[in-house]
């Protein structure tokens, strides 16, 4: 049983094609990661799937229902937007009551469900406080459970842990694992590679409106195995990237936090060439590293997810 089926979905804004014929399926009970740099078409895709934006062409079905049938889809899905769309002047409990009742959840279910969710997010003792007085992390946790009151079959999470400290992030991750364990399909957009790596059964990488790769994190990393990654500790200068990429056999060069990252084909032959090109610069160290999901992403899109 497929939870989400996307077939040749297209969205055009005037002459800009934001989403260009993407197709993928998500199995029931899967945690599916949706990655892409800013402006790649992530949000546009999610907005179409959640009936917040009309498609230009193609088809998509959620739980077997065509996305044209917005009111039926809305009952099936939960949405956790990236922006903290909370009613600051209501209490946490009232926020839950508001959205739950808009989802037609019966009163007694609202009571038990909100207790359960507030408890799971460590907000139980603040349930009657105005959201205005919550810390950023507390707001984010409340934001997540607002989309869950009606037990959706598919949950769309848009960057749920942005800006969180690692402890709070771990709490959300465990929570996502738990609700997924109860059978909920999760559609997660994120720009934290470790998050995608830790949580997702499969990830899709989208860039410039097209789907560039889709597989399990392990398989994606394996594909990169025939490429190698060199990390060079070096001072930055204007021509560094250009010089590095001028070496034949260097596929891609990225500089971040004092480290020049080179995606190369054949280390043994290239090492000398690279050293030669960079010779007038002081190199502190050169090391070969295991590819991470982030490296996969960079090698596919040529960009970092977010600076």
């Amino acid at each position: 049983m497929k939870s989400v089926e996307v077939d040749g979905l297209v969205k055009k804004f005037d002459d800009l094609t934001a989403v260009n014929e993407i197709s993928f399926d998500i199995e029931e009970g899967e945690i599916f990661g949706f990655l892409g740099p800013n402006g790649a078409g992530k949000s546009t895709t999610v907005n179409m799937l959640t009936c917040q934006l009309n498609k230009t062409a193609g088809n998509a079905r959620i739980c077997g229902i065509d996305i044209k049938d917005a009111s039926a889809i809305r009952e099936k899905i939960g949405i956790v937007p990236q922006e903290l769309a909370l009613n600051d002047m209501l209490t946490a409990k009232q926020n839950l009551y508001l959205y739950a009742s808009l989802y037609n959840v019966p009163r007694d279910v609202i009571r038990t469900k909100s207790e359960e969710l507030l408890d799971a997010m460590g907000l139980k003792n603040r349930e009657n406080d105005l959201v205005k007085n919550f810390s950023g992390g507390m707001k984010q946790r409340l934001n997540v459970i607002l989309g869950l009151m009606h037990r959706p079959e598919v949950l769309f999470l848009d960057e749920p842990t942005t800006g969180m400290d690692s402890q709070a992030r771990r709490m959300i991750w465990d929570f996502i694992k738990r609700i997924n364990g109860e059978g909920m399909t999760i559609f997660l957009t994120t720009h934290y590679m470790e998050e995608a790596d830790y949580l997702c059964d499969r990830v899709a990488i989208i860039d410039e409106g097209k789907l560039q790769a889709i597989d399990t994190p392990g398989n994606l990393k394996k594909k990169l195995k025939d490429k190698e990654i060199l990390e060079v500790q070096i001072e930055f200068d204007e021509n560094l990237i250009e010089d590095a990429e001028s070496v034949d056999g260097v596929l891609n060069a990225i500089y971040d936090k004092g480290v020049l990252k080179l995606f190369i084909k054949d280390r043994d032959r290239l090492l000398l060439d690279i050293a030669g090109v960079l010779s007038n610069r002081p190199i502190r160290s050169i090391s070969s590293v295991e590819p991470t999901l982030e490296d996969v992403f960079i090698s596919i899109t040529g960009k970092k997810l977010r600076d």
Partner: peptide, 9 residues
Amino acid sequence: IRKRILSTP
């Protein structure tokens, strides 16, 4: 908030 309310039925 309006968008979020609109995403409910």
